[in-house]
Design a protein around this nucleic acid. Sequence first.
RNA 1: GCCCCGAUAGCUCAGUGGAUAGAGCGUCAGCCUCCGGAGCUGAAGGUCGCACGUUCGAAUCGUGUUCGGGGCGCCA
Length: 594
Amino acid sequence: MTIEDALTTRIQRAVAALFPAMATTRVEIRPSIKPEFGDLSSPVALPLAKQARRSPLDVAQQLRAALQPSLPTYVRDTTVTPPGFINFFIDAALYAGLLCQEILEAGERYGRAATPIPQKIVVEHTNINSNKAAHVGHLRNACLGDTVVRILRANGYTVEAQNYIDDTGVQVADVIVGFRYLGKTYDGSLPFDFFCSQIYTEVQRAYQAQPALLDYRRQVLRDIEDRTSDIARFAKELSTKIVTRHIETMSRVNINYDLLTWESDILALGFWKHAFDLLTARHLLEHPTEGELAGCWVVPFGDGNVTTTDGQQRNSDKVLVKSDGVVTYTGKDLAYQMWKFGLLDLDFGYRLWATQLNGLSLWTTTHDPTQRPPRQFGHANRVVNVIDARQAYPQEVVYETLRRLGYSEQAEQSTHLSYQVVALSAGAAEALGVPVEPGKMTYAFSGRQGIEVKADELLDMAAQRLSQHLSAQRSEGRSKSTDERIAERLAVGAVRYYLLKFNLQQIIPFDFDDALRNTGDTGIYLQYAYARACNILERTGRAPEANQPATLCSQDKNLGDIGGIPRLLVEEVQERRGLLRHRANPRCGSPPAT
RNA sequence: GCCCCGAUAGCUCAGUGGAUAGAGCGUCAGCCUCCGGAGCUGAAGGUCGCACGUUCGAAUCGUGUUCGGGGCGCCA
């Protein structure tokens, strides 16, 4: 029990006793701003006084008196100061001793939920098209997703991390065009995914010069539909090799998954057809015979036809099946979302993909449903989709359609964990040869144009710089391979921290110097502090004891931070800003009458 | 046209109703024969885009507005 928790609970009790009508008032408690206001202060009397129409000072005094008998031993004194704050003076040495005891007892489980929550949450993240190397934008997604998984698990939820493989889209077809029609062959001089990134860019350029190549792409897409075709086999082999590389990259930063879900399996096993039948049975789709969307299957949505600022005609209804009969990404995503909740009477086949660095098995879906899994996948109570902010609209279409199908509970339990993209800072853009305009702060990545920073490149650069730093130090008998291992670990910390320290709604202006910095507010600082702490413990030659640190760190103002860690983890999930908050989009408030 | 996001120190960002708005980087001045200088101490630097409103109290909530980014695709 942290100081803040202990005091909050007691204040809540006092409020309930004195002001029963306002028992639900949110009790806030925070570090005091001045030493004469004690160590912790609460403004709780202020809103209470407002509602009760009494003097805030009186209310605070009354609360203080009511609290007095029940305060923990480490509270030395309490005061009330204008305009109505209640201040608590903490005996740091006493508290430090108690806190240390608590931490030593909990060990590595400190801060984690003591009891499991009987709820399953599926977290979908990473989701890289299987045609090219992962870049830093993908890395932001994966770091966020993996962190969400860890926080939810720490809170006691059963969590399943799924990585969705979009292996049936045009991007894969583009690379096949490069291999089959531009005569590209892989010579092993680059990692396979880097090589495919290069081909992808070259093919985009080739389309401009030889528009006839687009016909080849259409043919490739048709051929992929037939699973037995040579092209389909080639596509699967290509995607498998790329995904293998993605997993290798992510395992470098200690990101692991439970299941790879393949879009091609969703199609092959009839998930989409099943979802489509449900939609049409409930008359939720339109099938216009004329106009722009003639021949498509459409879910009516938003405002219908609009003229955009640039004068173009657009339609905010969402096409789920194109006029040529091919299902769109949003359609497939809807079927996938339904499967996650166990709403389809269908299941994938499964087989073991690999054993990961964390020791856990990674499973993959297959299109052979007779291959049974070791445990049940999907069937979630709640689903969190880590997807960038540009996809807010199609995500809302998925959730709203779920609701229209009658699954409003599941729609409510669906979260689009929306985050902004990574873009190049002006400096980084210039370094990559992008023309820089005065006054323009960020520049979008473009895989098509080959303007990007690959995840492995960034990690390699970070590791190399850190390795140089290490070799410049007195090595004290450290081997070169040890240096490299340390550099890799530090690089991972630096990159993960950099990608996580920004607010979700903030575009990260990617800057090489910033991302690779090894001083100040960085992951490396944390790792350094940890190493020093371990070193101190090692030198003392004995394990920490509950009664020792009380004198060691009695003056440390960071005690409250350490004691606050458990609450921090819980708040990430439960509070207003929590990860599981359902983010509703106002535009979806009024579905059109159908 | 409609919707979403951003705007806080020279730069990059924290801070979702409480007391005197914080950090890193950069700048300047200090600190290496007890803990790892990837560090520590201090200084300078801010009408929180703008206006009005709600409130005892607003960077925070509301309305309007300016600038920047994104979305409204038979792309994914």
